[in-house]
């Protein structure tokens, strides 16, 4: 297994918990994490990315406890694209090259020609070569997301963790980002953990899905085992219809409007 979590339990100071989460991702596999707002998806990602220390249980990267791996070595194997991460005021190429930091040798101050090559390849793969000299603040949400992916790829990771990579993107950019993710998985054998809010995209692109509720795993399995009317109805509190996608044969979700009761209306 590339990444495993065993009875993972985490909490912040104000007491939000992630409880007894078990999961496993193999190389070349994409695990989609879904669940309502506040169900602990981002907490789980932080714990997997070695940003949040677990209170109990463990996270294993290729069989080793992630907290026993030195930070630099970890960053050479695992790249993270956070949700709404700040990207600072710099040029695209400079930003992508930051992904090479974990590969620097001690006392190395400048990029080697190999570092430049890897960054170039990452920008080519993500199709952002034309943005090279632009400033990060001056681009659209879709371009920014691709730039962040390029930085992550420059780390040459074996595991890529993406927290809502398609948030704020239009349909075309969502598909572009996730098609790229699929290629990384299939052509480079990278393992992926992707948090997605859009259940249909999650179903379409993931090999396995992990549905969360209240900090616990509600269900983990193949898309057709998780995207079910009863399960989603229970977890999200919304009535839905699930049908098969005519092309991909994967389950797709449709909402039924006018059946929820959120808050109370004063009459």
């Amino acid at each position: 297994m590339m990444l495993e979590a065993r009875r993972l339990t985490c909490g912040y100071e104000d007491g939000f918990f992630l409880q007894d989460v078990d999961l496993a991702v193999a190389p070349g596999e994409c695990l989609g994490i879904i669940g309502p707002n506040g169900s602990g998806k981002t907490t789980l990602v932080r714990a997997l990315a070695r940003s949040l220390k677990p209170l109990a249980g463990e996270v294993l990267l290729e069989g080793r406890d992630v907290w026993s791996i030195p930070p630099r070595e970890f960053a050479r194997r695992v790249a993270v694209v956070s949700q709404d991460a700040q990207v600072g005021y710099m040029r695209v190429e400079e930003y992508v090259l930051l992904g090479r930091i974990p590969h620097y040798r001690p006392f190395q101050f400048l990029e080697t020609s190999r570092d430049l090559e890897v960054a170039d390849t990452a920008m080519e793969l993500t199709g952002i070569n034309y943005l090279k000299g632009r400033l990060l603040g001056e681009m659209s949400g879709g371009e920014r997301q691709l730039v962040m992916l390029a930085r992550a790829l420059a780390q040459e990771p074996r595991l890529l963790i993406l927290d809502e990579p398609t948030a704020h993107l239009d349909m075309a950019h969502q598909v572009a980002v996730l098609d790229l993710v699929r290629r990384l998985k299939e052509e480079l054998g990278i393992a992926l953990v992707v948090v997605l809010h859009d259940l249909n995209l999650a179903s379409e692109y993931s090999d396995g899905l992990l549905l969360m509720k209240g900090g616990r795993v509600k269900k983990m399995g193949a898309p057709h085992e998780v995207i079910r009317e009863d399960l989603l109805g229970e977890v999200y509190g919304v009535e839905v219809v699930v049908q098969e996608h005519p092309v991909s044969r994967r389950p797709h979700v449709m909402v039924i409007s006018g059946r929820t009761e959120v808050g109370s209306w004063r009459k």
Partner: peptide, 12 residues
């Protein structure tokens, strides 16, 4: 410059 968490992700 990218924030503490991002820097941590880069192995700093």
């Amino acid at each position: 410059a990218l924030g503490e968490e991002e820097a941590r992700h880069l192995g700093v």
